[in-house]
């Protein structure tokens, strides 16, 4: 691919990433259209009816899964889902090409970490969508992924270069890959948490804004969904922090030094621990827990953008 006229690996990678962004933009518009045209569902029963008892909820059998009537928005959302798959494929190609060009994992600077995080967001969403209907969430996942990519190609773009020696370790691969999946999961969780807050206001006010939010699951379902994702992501984040500590021990001779990056990783960890606690604490289970889930993502983003750009840290490998 190096002879005159044809693209270099780097250009091919960039082209794939631009193609991703175009595809995602279309997906976002379709998701938004589908969201806006949402209708109130006709189905009233789900597969499990539950009932409150003194001990918790009792599920009773109801084997009939009522088919959901086709709605106009659903077809748009289906197309948007397919486009999201396509975009994720293109982004994967972009990342692989970037890695091939640089001759290493594509996680050497903020540009690369950003496109990897966008990839993580999309992959977490798509993997979850194979197990349940997540079309209602599409808009709120594709939009942050697109924003991240936009930021990456405009502000953070860096020519590929090799890693500085402190980053050259297989712990980098382990630590960063866990962090990328966590970025994805935390983003999806925060989106669902934000939606649950909106939905809860709607439910309290008695079904105003019927059109837009009606096709979104109930507040309780959104909260459960959020907590499931965080229950998956929290142990993984714990793992990422431990891997980071092992890496730091190897590189700098101490496993924990309260460097700003480490401090914020700790803060994120504590906030999500608080989230899990809140889910078991009377009076904190509902909207307050959702706010904590959003706060968790905020601390994660502060660590990523704030610390890389503004703070003088051992970890400032931004390449800016």
């Amino acid at each position: 691919m190096t002879d005159g006229g044809s693209m270099s690996l780097a250009e091919a990678s960039n082209a794939a990433i631009y193609a991703t962004m175009v595809t995602l933009t279309v997906a976002m518009v379709l998701f938004a259209a589908s969201f806006a045209s949402g209708r109130r569902r006709t189905t009233s029963s789900s597969s499990v009816a539950s009932r409150e008892t003194a001990e918790g909820s009792v599920a009773v059998i109801d084997r009939v899964d009522t088919a959901v009537a086709a709605e106009p928005g659903r077809r748009l959302a289906n197309v948007a889902m397919s486009l999201t798959w396509l975009a994720t494929g293109l982004l994967t190609v972009g990342l692989v090409l970037r890695g091939l060009w640089a001759g290493r994992v594509p996680w050497g600077n903020m540009y690369e970490f950003s496109i990897s995080s966008a990839w993580g967001v999309l992959v977490v969403f798509l993997v979850l969508s194979t197990r349940r209907d997540l079309r209602w969430l599409g808009l709120f996942v594709v939009t942050p992924a697109l924003l991240t990519l936009g930021l990456a190609v405009t502000v953070l773009y860096t020519e590929a270069a090799q890693l500085v020696p402190a980053l050259k370790s297989y712990w980098l691969v382990i630590h960063v890959s866990a962090a990328i999946i966590c970025a994805g999961a935390f983003t999806v969780a925060a989106s669902a948490a934000a939606l649950s807050l909106v939905q809860s206001r709607r439910e309290q006010r008695g079904l105003t804004w019927q059109g837009v939010m009606a096709s979104t699951p109930s507040t309780e379902k959104l909260q459960t969904f959020t907590s499931r994702i965080i229950a998956f992501a929290f142990p993984l984040w714990t793992f990422a922090v431990i891997a980071g500590a092992i890496w730091a021990e190897n590189a700098w001779g101490r496993y924990w030094g309260w460097d700003p990056k480490e401090t914020w990783a700790f803060i994120t960890w504590v906030v999500y621990a608080a989230y899990l606690h809140a889910r078991s604490t009377a009076g904190w289970r509902g909207n307050r827990a959702s706010w904590i889930a959003i706060l968790g993502l905020v601390t994660f983003l502060i660590n990523y953008f704030g610390v890389n750009i503004f703070v003088n840290s051992l970890h400032s490998y931004g390449g800016l």
């Binding site: 001990e55 918790g56 599920a59 889910r279």
Partner: peptide, 18 residues
């Protein structure tokens, strides 16, 4: 007759019941 109860928060026992 079969029924189930989830003791964990946000648990779903329908699979076990099934």
């Amino acid at each position: 007759g079969v029924a189930g109860l989830s003791k964990s928060e946000a648990g779903d026992v329908s699979e076990d019941v099934r």
